[in-house]
Amino acid sequence: MKRSEQRISRYCLIRNRKIVLNEKTLIEEEPGADLSTFLSSIYKTFRPEYSKFYKMDLLSKLGFLTADFLLDGDHVQNTYGANEVAILISNSQSSLETDNRFQQTIADRDAYYPNPALFVYTLPSILIGEISIKHQIKGESAFFISALPDFDFMHQYADTLFQTTPTKAVITGWIDLNINAEYEAALFLIENRKQMEKRKRSWTFAAGSFSDLFYERNLEKDELFHG
């Protein structure tokens, strides 16, 4: 098989009150506090102040925070042109958590107060806008909906962008949140092996690696062959 030019150079997971960055667990909290409180406290503790964060809906906060850990250190911003970075995100629940909250503002005709600030977030792709604004990313982007993470497609479409567009780095992953605020977030950075930061590890650009990293499976085999 042809050796791919690209590698997964970084990834970040947020799930079960745990944040994992490149195999390292950064934070692990006891379940208890609601997701909103958890995300806000993580943000205050770990990330520089960014006033727009507090205006976002929960899905955007979750995805934004995942991206902020993933892109920490400005390597992407310093290495690539704004048009060379693509963002491909998918989930199963679209923006239903926010849709539900917006619906509550119009359900009762005697207490009818549709909130424009909330309505804007009834589109899942707003999350891509939030990440783009913060990190000044202006390349290709798309938001896909699938019942489960479709790692084959994630790989296939990122590869398609590398082959057919000016894209040199792809941020792809799964940012999902349901109406009960159960959540799952994972973002991967894929870039050309020659332009990666010098790091101990990177992972094969393949559907199997996304899946192994996402489900936190043992990755030693991967390292043996490609490390």
Partner: peptide
């Protein structure tokens, strides 16, 4: 029915398509 992936499946399975439909929701 509220899930967009479900809507995609209802349509593609009506025509007996064997592939998972792709659903794009990007404003």
């Amino acid at each position: 029915r509220l899930h967009l992936w479900h809507t995609g499946r209802v349509i593609s399975s009506f025509f007996d398509n064997p592939n998972q439909p792709l659903v794009i929701s990007n404003a």
